[in-house]
Computed example of a mutant assay.
Amino acid sequence: MDRSVYIAMTGATQTMRAQAEVAHNLANANTTGFKAELSAFQAMPVQGDGLQSRINGVAQGIGWDTTQGHQMETGNDLDVSVQGNGWIAVQTPDGVEGYTRAGNLRVDADGLLTDARGNAVMGGGGPITIPQASSLKIGSDGTISIVPLGQSPNTLTAVDRIKLVNPGNDQLTYGDDGLMHMRDGSTAEADANTRVVSGALEASNVNPSDVLVKMISLSREYEMQVRSIKSADENAQSASKLLQVG
């Protein structure tokens, strides 16, 4: 069979892989704190017998867009937006610590402070539990203060401090759970310099217009690869008929 079929097949497969990542970004254009994943086609040598000059274009992830999304004012005391670099530490149900920029926090029926996905928000000594209170405030350093039930508004009590980390983006990697994790599997140390703004959320940094343009471009590339496969098949059939005539 014509080797061009395999070249076109590889190109179509990798284009579909890149398209899936673009679609994932577009689906999260309205997800709080989402960072767009980045990918690019890279030249990879074909392993096996043959000349070392054989190269395939492979779609590979190259990280994510670190640009901060625009800040949305909500007025909700439990909403926080991380300023500059930094992340909110949360604990998944299986006990693994991850990091997120999604600051739309909640207090569940048991008083546990969680993110919108139900992951427990980490504090100085573990997951944060909020006692019953008439009001709650989150300071710029992540300190959570409440007015206990039955107390005057001037009676503020510090409950805990949200664990904010800033290990460096090069030390983090996207996890299948939608959270960032340390590349080496360790736990990031709290960073006293990371700040948040209460009553606001960080929007996704995905630009829908740019993503749609890229999606259309990849669709056209895929169609071109499929046409190449059909052309190679038609050429093979024509050659076969000529040999039969001979």
Results as ranks from 00 to 15, higher is better:
residue 30 N to Q: 14
residue 70 H to C: 03
residue 228 S to E: 05
residue 29 A to N: 04
residue 198 S to K: 00
residue 39 S to M: 06
residue 228 S to P: 00
residue 198 S to A: 08
residue 128 I to T: 11
residue 18 A to W: 10
residue 235 N to V: 12
residue 205 N to G: 05
residue 117 R to M: 14
residue 171 Q to W: 01
residue 220 R to K: 05
residue 207 N to P: 03
residue 130 I to K: 08
residue 204 S to H: 08
residue 124 G to T: 14
residue 67 T to N: 06
residue 224 M to P: 03
residue 180 M to Q: 09
residue 27 A to D: 08
residue 166 N to P: 11
residue 82 V to C: 01
residue 1 M to A: 15
residue 47 Q to V: 12
residue 240 S to F: 10
residue 64 W to H: 11
residue 61 G to S: 11
residue 91 Q to F: 09
residue 116 A to W: 00
residue 210 D to I: 04
residue 32 T to H: 01
residue 33 G to A: 07
residue 88 I to T: 02
residue 55 I to C: 05
residue 9 M to C: 08
residue 151 Q to G: 07
residue 157 T to Y: 03
residue 172 L to H: 07
residue 19 Q to T: 14
residue 132 Q to S: 12
residue 232 A to E: 07
residue 217 S to K: 05
residue 25 N to W: 00
residue 68 Q to H: 03
residue 41 F to K: 04
residue 61 G to P: 00
residue 123 G to P: 11
residue 15 T to F: 01
residue 177 D to S: 08
residue 58 V to D: 07
residue 164 L to D: 14
residue 81 S to K: 01
residue 173 T to G: 04
residue 107 V to T: 15
residue 30 N to S: 12
residue 239 A to K: 11
residue 110 D to H: 12
residue 239 A to T: 12
residue 69 G to F: 06
residue 245 V to C: 00
residue 111 G to L: 15
residue 162 I to S: 03
residue 202 E to M: 04
residue 117 R to E: 13
residue 165 V to R: 08
residue 43 A to V: 13
residue 197 V to F: 00
residue 242 L to G: 00
residue 74 T to C: 02
residue 40 A to T: 15
residue 236 A to R: 09
residue 98 G to M: 06
residue 6 Y to H: 10
residue 99 Y to P: 01
residue 21 E to Q: 13
residue 33 G to E: 03
residue 52 Q to W: 14
residue 119 N to R: 12
residue 66 T to L: 06
residue 34 F to Y: 15
residue 63 G to L: 07
residue 237 Q to L: 09
residue 71 Q to C: 01
residue 200 A to P: 00
residue 61 G to Q: 13
residue 146 I to D: 05
residue 23 A to V: 15
residue 191 D to C: 05
residue 236 A to T: 13
residue 90 V to N: 01
residue 245 V to W: 05
residue 166 N to V: 03
residue 219 S to A: 13
residue 75 G to Q: 03
residue 124 G to R: 13
residue 237 Q to A: 12
residue 35 K to C: 09
residue 186 S to Y: 02
residue 154 N to H: 08
residue 131 P to T: 11
residue 95 G to D: 10
residue 12 A to F: 13
residue 1 M to W: 02
residue 69 G to Y: 04
residue 160 D to I: 12
